[in-house]
Amino acid sequence: MDDWLSIAIRFALYVDLLLLLGLPAFALMNRTTLLSRSDAQLNVRRFVLGAAVIGLLISASSMLVLAKAMSGVTQFSELSQHIFEMILMGTDVGIAWVVRVVALSAIVIVTFAVQRHTASSHGVVAALAAIALATVAWSGHGAMDEGARRYPHLIADILHLFAAAVWVGALAAFAMLLRRAKTPSFDQLVGLSRALAGFAMVGTLIVVTLIVTGAVNYWLTVGLSLSPLVSSQYGLLLLAKLCLFFAMLGLAAANRYHLTPRLEQSIDRGDTRAAVKALRSSLVLETGAALLILLLVAWLGVLSPSAPL
C-alpha cells in the first residue's frame, strides 16, 4: 500500500513540476503566441500559481510518506518532530526537499507580486521551477551512487528532467492554443502554426538530450548489459517506457512533417477544421503517452534495478 501511495505522489509531483517549468519555458520561446494576448497571459499566470501551490501540497505529502518509511513507524500519527528534523537537516533528500519548498514558495510570491507576466517574470518563474524540478533527482537512483559516479548521474538525471519538462510544457501550450482555436480567428491559427513550426529545432535538441541522458542513466544504474531489460520488473517497465517514448517520437514526427504543413496549407485555403481536428487528436495521443511514461518513471523510482522477476 505504501509503495502505491509513494508512486502516486511521485507521479503527481512529476506532472506538476514538469508543467511548472515547461509552460513558462515555452512561453519564453514563443512570446508572439502566448505572451501577446492578455487572456493567454492570465491563463499562464493562473496555471503557474496553481501548479506552485499544488506542488507545495504534494511535497508536504511526500515528506510524510518519506518520514514514515525512514522511521519505520506503522502509522502517520506516530511521526514526531524529531524524525522530521533528522530528515530535513541530516539527509540529502531532506535538504533537497527544503530547497524545493523554498523555490515553490518563491514562485507563489513572484506570481502574486507580478500582475502582468512579461518575458522577465517568466524567466524568473522558469529559473525557480528549474531549481524545484532539479531537487527531484535526489529522490532517484542517482542519489544512491557514491564517489565519482554520483554527480555525473545526478547531472544526467537533471538534464533528462529539464528536457522532458520542455516537451511536456510544449504539449500543454499547444493544448491551450488548440482550445482557443475551437472557433479560431486567422491570427490565432497563424500563431499556432508558427509555434508548431518554431518548436521543430527545440524538439530535436530535446530528443537528443533525452536519448543521451537516458543512455547514461541506464549505464550508471544497471550497467552495460541489456539482459536486465528482460530479467527484472525494473527492466520490463523500462522497456515499456522506451516503447512509449518511441511512440511519442513518431507522433511528434507526424506533427512536424505532416500535420503542421497541412495546417499551414489549410490556412491558405481558408478551411482549417479538418487540419485542426487531426492535430488535436495527435496531441491527445502524445499527451496520453507522456502521462503513461511519467507513471512508469514514478514506479521505476521505487524499484531496485537489480531485483529479479
Rank of each mutant, 00 (worst) to 15 (best):
5 L>M: 14
7 I>W: 03
16 D>N: 10
17 L>N: 09
17 L>M: 00
19 L>P: 05
20 L>Q: 02
28 L>H: 13
32 T>Q: 14
32 T>C: 12
32 T>Y: 10
36 S>I: 09
39 D>M: 08
40 A>S: 00
41 Q>A: 15
41 Q>W: 03
42 L>D: 14
44 V>I: 15
46 R>V: 03
52 A>Q: 01
58 I>N: 14
61 S>G: 13
63 M>S: 15
67 A>T: 09
71 S>F: 00
72 G>P: 01
72 G>S: 02
75 Q>C: 11
78 E>Q: 10
78 E>R: 00
79 L>G: 08
81 Q>C: 01
82 H>S: 10
86 M>C: 00
91 T>N: 04
93 V>R: 03
96 A>I: 01
100 R>E: 12
102 V>W: 07
105 S>F: 00
113 A>W: 05
117 H>I: 07
119 A>L: 04
119 A>S: 08
126 A>C: 14
126 A>D: 02
134 A>M: 04
135 T>E: 12
135 T>C: 15
137 A>E: 05
142 G>W: 05
143 A>D: 02
144 M>D: 06
147 G>M: 08
151 Y>D: 11
153 H>V: 08
156 A>F: 02
158 I>V: 11
159 L>K: 07
165 A>F: 01
167 W>N: 05
169 G>M: 09
171 L>A: 03
172 A>P: 01
172 A>N: 02
174 F>R: 06
176 M>K: 06
179 R>L: 07
182 K>N: 08
183 T>C: 07
185 S>W: 04
190 V>Y: 07
196 L>V: 04
197 A>M: 07
199 F>R: 06
203 G>L: 11
209 T>W: 04
218 Y>L: 14
218 Y>T: 15
219 W>V: 15
226 L>H: 03
231 S>W: 05
231 S>N: 10
231 S>K: 09
232 S>P: 00
234 Y>D: 04
236 L>M: 10
238 L>N: 14
241 K>W: 09
244 L>N: 03
245 F>P: 01
248 M>P: 00
250 G>E: 04
250 G>N: 08
252 A>T: 04
262 R>P: 06
265 Q>V: 07
265 Q>M: 10
266 S>M: 14
266 S>L: 06
275 A>L: 10
280 R>V: 14
284 V>F: 04
284 V>R: 10
289 A>L: 10
293 I>V: 02
295 L>Q: 13
298 A>G: 09
300 L>T: 14
303 L>R: 12
306 S>D: 02
308 P>I: 11
309 L>V: 05
